[in-house]
Amino acid sequence: MTDATWEGVRARLRALAERPLDDRAFDNGVFGALGHRFRLDDPLTPEGLADLEARTGVSLPEEYRGFLLHVGAGGAGPAYGVFPVLCEHGTWRWVGDGADLADLARLAEPFPRRGPDPARLEALLAERPDEEELDDGDDFDAALEEWSDRWEALMWSADRTVGAVPICHLGCATRQWLVLTGPERGRIWADNRVDEVDLEPLLDADGEPVTFTWWYLGWLEAAERELSLT
């Protein structure tokens, strides 16, 4: 990955930002544009990036490092945009809806490619209380709360997402994560756990894992087509 990968990206986004936006941008393909309006945060300095990596104890994937240095620390991007990373009072953190799900003290640990045992997951889903089978509403509420506690302990454990950070929010508590460590390093994973679906790698049309660059530049090209800039 070279710096040339990100050459001209900020200018392309400025051109998009100059286009008037209305509901068409939301309804016809550029989801989230009315929120970020194609604006970017300033890029990190090399010194800032070095400090980020030193304080988190992890070497960021090269594609993401290039983005932070040459495009921006966050802002315009897929869905509601790329979560910004910033330093406050000597502490680095990612900012966005659900960004606090990342355990910043465990970013250097290898991201776990495998989730809960599928049989265990299927068994737990089968045990979810059915309101029609419980005559008393209070009994159903109590049973659902007990089941939800077990579900969250299994699916939302911080152990599931060590070595990764949420990178964007798609709405309704669905997100995408960027893996920082391990065999999946540099790839994007989908998080639809709110819909009782386990974390899974994001794949392209050919079934190949989606990398940060493919994810971001693919979105940018689609936005330019939608707003008739290509």
Rank of each mutant, 00 (worst) to 15 (best):
W215D: 01
E146A: 15
D198M: 02
T181D: 08
D195F: 08
V210Y: 07
D191I: 06
L203A: 06
L170D: 03
W189V: 00
V162K: 01
S157F: 00
P209F: 05
A158R: 14
T161F: 06
F212Q: 03
D130M: 11
Y216V: 09
P129K: 12
D130P: 02
E133R: 15
T161E: 08
W214Y: 10
C168K: 00
D198G: 07
G137H: 13
E127M: 12
H169N: 12
G182N: 06
A173N: 15
D191G: 05
A205T: 13
S148P: 00
D204G: 04
R175W: 06
F140Q: 01
W156Q: 09
A153L: 01
A143Q: 07
R128E: 14
W214R: 15
G207I: 02
S148L: 09
V194G: 05
L154Y: 10
I188Q: 07
S148D: 12
S157C: 08
E145N: 01
W215S: 03
N192F: 05
E208A: 12
G171L: 03
W189F: 10
D191F: 00
A173M: 12
N192S: 04
R128A: 15
G186Q: 08
E146M: 02
E145F: 02
D130K: 14
R160N: 09
D206Y: 00
E208T: 04
W214N: 07
H169Q: 01
E196F: 05
W156C: 13
D198I: 00
V179R: 04
T174M: 11
R185H: 10
G207C: 01
L202C: 10
A205M: 01
A190R: 08
R187S: 07
L202P: 02
G186K: 06
A143W: 07
G182M: 05
V179S: 11
W156T: 03
D204N: 15
E133M: 14
I188K: 09
D191V: 05
D195V: 04
V210H: 05
P201W: 00
P129A: 13
A158K: 13
D139Q: 10
P209S: 03
A143D: 09
L134C: 09
R187F: 05
Y216W: 11
T213D: 14
W151V: 06
W151M: 10
A143V: 05
P183A: 11
D191E: 00
W189R: 06
W177N: 00
A190C: 11
W214D: 14
Q176K: 12
E152S: 14
P129Q: 07
A164K: 05
G137T: 06
D206N: 11
S157Y: 00
L144E: 10
L134S: 13
D135V: 14
D159Q: 09
W147N: 03
W151Y: 15
R175H: 14
H169V: 00
